[in-house]
């Protein structure tokens, strides 16, 4: 039916339907799964996302080395405290939810990889917050998740979502692109607007490296989940406002893939470069694992 973003969007435009309809049709046709089964699986995933996005907001969770324990609660209190914030309470709540997912993941809690475990906070934080803010129905939320998933599948097909292959841009960046496309649809933007949002989300973080301190999925992964959730929202707004990407989505995805492969090994999930290789990063590694694990 479709092999890339342009073909997917063209089908939707031709039929006058949202991207999620085309993605649903492909999933049913290609894998013989019924509409009911697909929505049930999406619902199960969405519920796990909702729980992960809420779990650490009020109670800190234990993590190896305690590197990100309590971050979510701090952000949540700041967001909900009624005091002045720079970005407003909505964006701060989005970040708190992304941090919650990261904290749940690092504490060996239950999450839904989207597209990976390390990037599991972005799609939930964006979707749950947007759905709540605008009082959308469960069906709309699931259609948003369908669009996010379909965009992720196309990127898996034509590029990569593995940090070891493409760096953080391929994990958190792709999650931002997935969430941006979904939010555009929920906000009433057409398929071509979703594609522009995908472009902006990936352009905004092109080249972002994967450099986890001590090899743990905590620093700077949690911060990247928070910032890429915001990237998803602002990319959606850029596209919804009318900005068009001069570079088509499929070319941007290809560029992301090529940049990922050009990254040296040290910056692809090996914990040998970037933030992981700083003096303090190495010190944390020694503190947690002892000297032999540097």
């Amino acid at each position: 039916m479709y092999r890339n973003m342009k073909e997917m969007a063209d089908l939707a435009i031709e039929k006058g339907v949202p991207l999620s309809d085309i993605i649903l049709e492909n999933e049913m046709g290609r894998f013989g799964t019924s509409r009911k089964e697909i929505y049930e699986k999406l619902r199960e995933r969405y519920q796990v996302m909702e729980r992960a996005a809420a779990k650490a907001l009020e109670s800190p969770l234990p993590t190896v080395g305690g590197l990100i324990t309590g971050n979510s609660r701090t952000q949540y209190q700041y967001a909900a405290g009624g005091g002045k914030t720079v970005c407003g309470s909505f964006l701060n709540l989005v970040m708190a939810r992304a941090l919650s997912c990261s904290e749940v993941n690092a504490s060996m809690g239950r999450i839904c990889a989207a597209p990976t475990a390390g990037a599991c906070g972005i799609v939930p934080a964006v979707l749950v917050s947007y759905v709540e803010e605008h009082g959308l129905s469960e069906e709309e939320a699931l259609n948003g998740l369908m669009t996010a998933s379909g965009v992720g599948a196309v990127i898996m097909k034509n590029a990569t979502v593995a940090g070891a292959e493409g760096g953080c841009q391929a994990e958190c960046g792709v999650a931002a692109a997935m969430a941006a496309a979904a939010v555009v649809q929920l906000a009433g933007g057409g398929p071509e607007v979703s594609l522009h949002a995908i472009c902006f989300a990936l352009m905004n973080c092109m080249g972002l490296v994967c450099d986890p301190v001590a090899g743990l999925v905590q620093i700077p992964c949690a911060q990247r989940n928070a910032s890429q959730a915001v990237n998803a929202l602002l990319s959606a707004d850029l596209a919804l406002a009318g900005m068009k990407s001069w570079i088509p989505a499929d070319e941007v995805i290809d560029a992301m893939y090529r940049v990922g492969r050009q990254l040296p090994l040290q910056l692809r999930e090996t914990a040998l470069g970037g933030i992981a290789a700083t003096r303090s990063g190495k010190e944390i590694t020694r503190r947690i694992f002892g000297s032999h694990e540097e």
Binding site: M1, Y2, R3, M8, I23, N26, E27, R30, F31, I38, K41, E44, R45, V48, V104, N105, A106, S107, M108, G109, R110, I111, C112, A113, A114, P115, T116, A117, G118, C120, V123, L145, M146, A148, S149, G150, V151, G152, A153, V154, I155, M156, K157, V161, M178, L216, V217
Partner: peptide, 21 residues
């Protein structure tokens, strides 16, 4: 598209790593 949407969003799992956990 021969990749299922549930490969892009999923699996449901205990963190922190899909390969290591």
């Amino acid at each position: 598209m021969d990749i299922s949407i549930f490969e892009a969003v999923g699996p449901l799992m205990i963190g922190p790593s899909s390969s290591h956990t």
